[in-house]
């Protein structure tokens, strides 16, 4: 791997007496799709929150393209090209789908006409064209996730996209649509992805490498086949070997 686009070293996050992340190191190369797996409570979302500025680390360093971003506000981090989605989709319910997608675009001083064209193209690729001008609150849970994933792609300077459980509670058709969007943006813009998910089939199709977290630490890192055959991963997370 050449120099990583996203690198975190020694990240620590404590909530009162509980240490959610206890010295986490992770390095993701440009254009890579990195999966993060681990049992509930392993600290995956805490890690994502620190990387994206939602939580402030107690210790450790985060570098994006070599520049430190630890402790910056989420909007400042998004401005540097690191964008995230939330497990519970945050959409602007009273605004149309197109308007929802314009917010991240215009925040970066994009042009309105270009932004709208781009938003409609993306909504089309997300198979939501029929609903483009409907308020987002009319969407189903799965469609909201899709809209939120699409919103990240509107960020003009997107370099790293962190997706927190984008496949949870989503039907298979929408899962495939999300995978298509990821593949296209990766191919066309060389976007790097960090994906947190429990869906092992999807992670096998999607990710170059997997980082396994257990109890606030990185247990190991490797291809899905490598980590899935590790007895510690089977014991702590998978329960039984993957076939």
């Amino acid at each position: 791997m050449t120099s990583p686009v996203l690198a975190a070293t020694g990240l620590v996050k404590r909530f009162g007496g509980f240490t959610a992340n206890d010295g986490v190191d992770i390095a993701v190369g440009a254009g890579e799709v990195r999966g993060i797996i681990g049992p509930n409570g392993a600290g995956k979302t805490t890690l994502v929150n620190m990387i994206t500025g939602v939580e402030r680390p107690n210790a450790g360093e985060i570098l994006l393209g070599g520049a430190p971003i630890g402790g910056l506000a989420p909007d400042a981090i998004a401005a540097r090209g690191l964008v995230r989605s939330f497990q519970v989709a945050r959409v602007f319910g009273d605004m149309s789908l197109v308007e929802n997608l314009l917010v991240p675009y215009l925040a970066r001083r994009g042009r309105l006409a270009e932004g709208e064209a781009r938003a409609r193209d993306l909504i089309g690729r997300a198979n939501l064209a029929r609903l483009a001008d409907a308020p987002a609150k009319t969407l189903s849970g799965g469609q909201r996730v899709l809209l939120q994933v699409a919103a990240g792609f509107m960020c003009p300077q997107l370099s790293v996209y962190v997706l927190d459980e984008p496949f949870a509670g989503v039907n298979p058709v929408i899962k495939d649509t999300i995978l298509d969007l990821i593949a296209t943006e990766r191919r066309e813009r060389n976007v790097t992805f960090v994906v947190v998910s429990h869906e092992m089939d999807i992670m096998r199709r999607l990710c170059d490498r997997i980082t396994v977290m257990v109890e606030g630490r990185v247990l190991l890192e490797g291809t899905l086949e490598e980590v899935a055959s590790d007895p510690r991963v089977v014991a702590a997370y998978l329960g039984k070997p993957l076939r």
């Binding site: 909007d75 998004a78 995230r84 959409v91 009273d94 605004m95 925040a107 960020c155």
Partner: peptide
């Protein structure tokens, strides 16, 4: 647009870079 969005989700507009 940004004001309307932030009336619906403060976190949402922040992650959008506002």
């Amino acid at each position: 647009l940004a004001l309307r969005a932030s009336s619906q989700s403060r976190v949402g507009v922040q992650i959008a870079g506002v």
